[in-house]
């Protein structure tokens, strides 16, 4: 694994606030709200229907298999594709691999690639400070303020009226015509994320009920559950857990969410080394997306996989210890 030098943001100052980077426009606000309502309500209704059908059709390997298969596929698209590849450029791939990853990430149903990358980069530029799109720490320090802050960071922020300017945060991706096109076709990929498990389920069962099971468990239930994992990253991962690295923000490592978030809940590691392709920095820090990148590298599909050297990690840990002992 090549260990390209990686800068830790722990020592970097937050970039100056660019008033052009966030704005509000009635058309974009309306479209974002329709999207937010759709992606929260439709999968929830689908999940209720799926649960109601369990006493009738049972809960067998077809349901579980399509759910887990689609979960792994779309979590890989989101975490390997949208996050570690497009947002942080922590490794390089060819256009075909990139396209497949972006399509799978779009099936995750949290918005088009460029929009996701822009708001995520804004989160890194202003973590837990003014300008962070989803910090739980920007509300008043009262009981109601804390509750509101939590709701905002969990899911509330997606209903907001702000738009992140992609020209401020994603110039590199906008210059890539393929990524712009893939982003524009977002709703087709969302439909594919439901049609694909439906087709597989229908073929396995040889009956229409298999297609319904596929759409419900591989589509709606999968979207509903994977979204809860994604919401935990913007909320829990800045509230509860350990902080081996004393980064400027309040990011944490949270073991219990490692598998559902595909490794992103090693979130303190991530904020300490944002351009690392590996978020699990210890052998026991389960990092499914990191393993996928490792396999892509072995297959010759991923190159220049960045990871901080052990010395760099040790240096940051030592620095963090000094900081916390100086404080106490």
């Amino acid at each position: 694994m090549s260990s390209d030098s990686i800068n830790s943001p722990a020592t970097e100052a937050s970039p100056p606030w660019d008033p052009e980077s966030v704005f509000s426009h009635r058309t974009l606000t309306r479209n974002q709200r329709i999207h937010a309502i759709a992606i929260t309500s439709i999968p929830a209704v689908g999940t209720i229907i799926a649960l109601c059908l369990v006493p009738v059709w049972g809960l067998g390997w077809l349901e579980i298999g399509l759910f887990l298969g689609m979960y792994a596929l779309t979590a890989t698209g989101m975490e390997v594709g949208f996050h570690r590849l497009l947002s942080h450029r922590s490794f390089r791939v060819g256009p075909v691999t990139e396209t497949v990853l972006v399509i799978c990430g779009s099936m995750f149903t949290l918005g088009p690639a460029i929009n996701w990358v822009s708001s995520h980069r804004r989160h890194h530029a202003h973590t837990d400070a003014h300008g962070d799109p989803h910090s739980p720490h920007l509300h008043p320090k009262t009981f109601t303020g804390r509750v509101m802050g939590f709701i905002h960071s969990y899911v509330g922020w997606i209903f907001g009226n702000e738009s992140t300017n992609s020209a401020s945060y994603s110039k590199d991706q906008l210059r890539n015509h393929r990524i712009v096109r893939l982003s524009q076709l977002y709703y087709y990929w969302v439909l594919l994320g439901i049609a694909l498990p439906a087709a597989v389920g229908g073929m396995i069962e040889g009956h229409w009920t298999g297609a319904v099971v596929g759409a419900l468990w591989g589509g709606f239930v999968r979207i509903f559950v994977s979204h809860q994992a994604a919401y935990s990253l913007t909320s829990f991962s800045h509230l509860f857990g350990s902080r081996p690295f004393k980064t400027r923000d309040r990011s944490t490592n949270l073991f219990v969410m490692a598998i559902p978030t595909w490794g992103q809940s090693w979130h303190n590691n991530h904020h300490a080394f944002p351009s690392s392709a590996m978020l699990g920095l210890r052998w026991w820090q389960i990092d499914p997306a990191g393993y996928v990148i490792g396999v892509l590298r072995l297959l010759g599909l991923a190159k220049d996989v960045k990871r901080p050297s052990n010395e760099e990690i040790a240096r940051q840990i030592a620095r963090s210890r000094e900081l916390s002992s100086a404080r106490s």
């Binding site: 974009l28 822009s118 020209a167 906008l174 015509h177 712009v180 982003s183 524009q184």
Partner: peptide, 30 residues
């Protein structure tokens, strides 16, 4: 806004080819 050479911007190709997504399109209108 995209930090590209204006000489390379063709006026007869669709906006997406120029790196204009839905957000930048609204910024242009504004």
């Amino acid at each position: 806004n995209l930090e590209v050479d204006p000489a390379g911007i063709e006026t007869d190709v669709t906006f997406d080819r120029l790196g204009v997504d839905s957000v930048v399109a609204v910024k242009i209108v504004m």
